[in-house]
Simulated scan of single mutants.
Amino acid sequence: MREFGLIGQSLGHSFSQTYFQQKFHTLGIEGCSYDLFELPSITHFTDLLGRRPALAGLNVTIPYKEQIWPYLDEVAPSAARVGAVNVVEFAADGRRIGHNTDYIGFRESVRGFYPTRGEAAGALVLGSGGASKAVEAALRELGIRHWLVSRNPLGRGLTYDDLTPAILDAHPLIINCTPLGTAPNVHECPPVPYDSLTAEHYLFDLIYNPSETLFMEKGRAVGAQTKNGFEMLCIQAEAAWEIWNQ
């Protein structure tokens, strides 16, 4: 039996187990399982490895995409480029190798969603965690200038209080990389001045449960284009499967 799974702190919102179980069933892949492993802290990762010696690959989600690094033997170029890990490969020689497929998933998903390029292609990245790092890496590859937005006034980007109508007008693409709005807390959303959004904006939410977050709903109310993170999930999951089976 080859075991795969997802580690994170709270996984009730995740579709990863359903995705892979359906994949195994549809393709007739036998001898594989996919489980959810909620860890109260990353220090429990070693205990998990001891309990599950058949682990062949892991996905990593909030808040461990950066905290997992000390438990790895090396990181692949994708993770080094992003600065965060969302896939752990268990190599045949026993090495644990960190990869990042989030940026691949976002890059390919946003490429078909946001058509603007060049000087007008500004983006605002909401949040400063591991997911936002993957998004920034993808935006750099796509040549889309961007600002990071967080609550931290001492951070390297903007705060939500800095989001004037002029700033929003110059950055039509807005990406929610925070967990705000994830089920069951569906009544939360990033504190963006939504009344300054227009039909020219594109709101991309990395959250996929619920399928329409309050962030997306508020954008749709003014005519903005919206997209959730389900396609990104599928693309990054397939990229992870390739890594585990290379």
Score class of each variant (00 low, 15 high):
Ala84Ile: 12
Gly127Cys: 11
Ala183Ser: 15
Pro70Arg: 08
Ala121Trp: 08
Arg151Leu: 11
Val82Glu: 10
Thr178Lys: 10
Asn176Met: 08
Ala134Trp: 11
Leu214Gln: 09
Asp162Gly: 05
Ile29Gln: 04
Ile174Arg: 10
Val186Arg: 07
Ala56Glu: 07
Gly57Glu: 06
Leu180Met: 13
Ile235Ala: 02
Ile29Asn: 00
Trp69Val: 12
Ala92Lys: 10
Trp69His: 13
Ala56Arg: 15
Ile62Val: 12
Val85Arg: 03
Phe230Leu: 15
Asn100Arg: 09
His99Pro: 06
Leu233His: 09
Pro193Thr: 01
Asn86His: 07
Phe215Trp: 07
Asn209Thr: 14
Ile144Tyr: 04
Pro53Thr: 11
Ala137Ser: 14
Lys23Val: 04
Ala239His: 01
Ile167Lys: 15
Pro77Ser: 08
Gln246Gly: 13
Ser14Pro: 05
Ser211Ala: 15
Asp35Met: 06
Leu203Gly: 03
Leu233Tyr: 09
His187Val: 04
Arg96Glu: 00
Tyr208Leu: 14
Asp35Ile: 02
Pro153Phe: 06
Leu6Glu: 02
Gln17Tyr: 00
Ala131Leu: 11
Gly94Cys: 05
Asn176Gln: 10
Val125Thr: 13
Ala183Glu: 05
Pro70Ser: 03
Ala120Met: 11
Leu180Tyr: 07
Pro190Ser: 04
Leu203Met: 02
Met1Phe: 01
Ser78Leu: 12
Phe24Trp: 11
Pro179Ser: 07
Arg145Trp: 08
Asp102Glu: 09
Tyr71Asp: 05
Arg111Asp: 14
Arg2Phe: 00
Glu200Gln: 14
Tyr114Lys: 11
Gln9Asn: 08
Ala138Ile: 07
Trp147His: 12
Cys177Val: 11
Pro210Leu: 08
Trp244Thr: 02
Gly112Trp: 10
Cys177Gln: 09
Val222Lys: 13
Thr198Met: 09
Glu188Trp: 06
Trp69Cys: 05
Tyr208His: 12
Gly57Met: 09
Ser33Val: 05
Leu214Arg: 14
His171Arg: 11
Phe4Thr: 00
Ile7Asp: 00
Leu11His: 01
Pro70Val: 06
